[in-house]
Design a protein around this nucleic acid. Sequence first.
DNA 1: TACAAATTGGGACGGTTGTCCTAATTGTGT
DNA 2: ACACAATTAGGACAACCGTCCCAATTTGTA
Lengths: 202, 202
Amino acid sequence: MTFSTRELIVREADQIFYEKGFEAASFSDIAAAVGISRGNFYYHFKTKDDILDAVITHRLATTRAMLDDWARQSPSAVDRIMSFIQMLISNQTTIMAFGCPVGTLCSELAKLDHAARTRAAAIFGLFREWLEEQFRELGQTGNASELALHLLARSQGIATLANAFRDEDFVCTEVAALKAWLQSIIDDSSDKNRKERKNECT
Amino acid sequence: MTFSTRELIVREADQIFYEKGFEAASFSDIAAAVGISRGNFYYHFKTKDDILDAVITHRLATTRAMLDDWARQSPSAVDRIMSFIQMLISNQTTIMAFGCPVGTLCSELAKLDHAARTRAAAIFGLFREWLEEQFRELGQTGNASELALHLLARSQGIATLANAFRDEDFVCTEVAALKAWLQSIIDDSSDKNRKERKNECT
DNA sequence: TACAAATTGGGACGGTTGTCCTAATTGTGT
DNA sequence: ACACAATTAGGACAACCGTCCCAATTTGTA
């Protein structure tokens, strides 16, 4: 697998924006990481905002691909949502060091009053819509949107506090609570279905 | 009420750090807000980090004072925790614009690998310990710490998504869910107490 | 009123930033 | 081998940053 210089820039910028923040990340940082000169930058991207746009586009694409993978790998909607929750565990180290890539970028761009703010929030939108779809598939047709936002918010809160306190146990406890919450939704739903089925019989 | 120049600087810096972020906030910004010259700054604070330290100290003090007020105004632990939750409503506008002051500062300092990172997280620590105390007073002696962290995390998640999506309804829905969650804890606890009392009678 | 201390404004400093230009190098098709 | 386009490195640039100095001004005090 070989990448063009432009792709390399986007990938390195993505990582550096995540680790240092957009504002604190400089052209020099990215150039050094890619292994090119600062001057060469202008050929690929006119401004720093152009790089940010490309990074967000890249993140939108990789997020979509990840969600598609989850959907492909597990036929059950519960397992798919579990994949989302499990992300907090598999990315635990980087989350404790730098927070959630999406949440922290959105926060920073909001403070900078940056034009790309909306596009960054669209990454959240992908998760939101995907989760919404999974909950709808679980039979939660009426409140799928609320459940999706709720899960998204819980994850964000866990990431923020994990980053602030650097507490591994906290993440494990909260993830367990999140899985229990999901299970309780399924249980409630099947209880309801059973009742409805019973009503149909009478 | 009159403030010294030093106090004015801290207050304005506090606000500007919140709205623009620590890195993006410049001496010029703060000086303009206070109404003093840039040069005069050095007399009160040697470095930008010194200002940050003073701002964090100020936030620690105001947070402590606010928590004390809540404790003083409502004798019941439930109402005190409700005061905390209600904060999401009363600060809704600024949260949607700039996120949570504590969470966003911690995230930024973590990315900057700043020395003041720990001290900023200590503001979270104040809320954590205070909430822990309230839950303990509610009879949740065994899991007061988990409950406190859980509530803190939920609030952070709500703030982050409220900022990203700028959705008022979402905040209201989640705050209602949070209050219901608190109520369910009380109900469970009183159920348990009733059972225990019944057992004592038999 | 006079003197010392506290406080202030204006500006200089070295460094870094994003941006942009240009000359040199590399690659490609004929 | 040649011409032409794509790509590169290096550096210039103006603006801004945090920092720092110093002379002027204000304030407090004897």
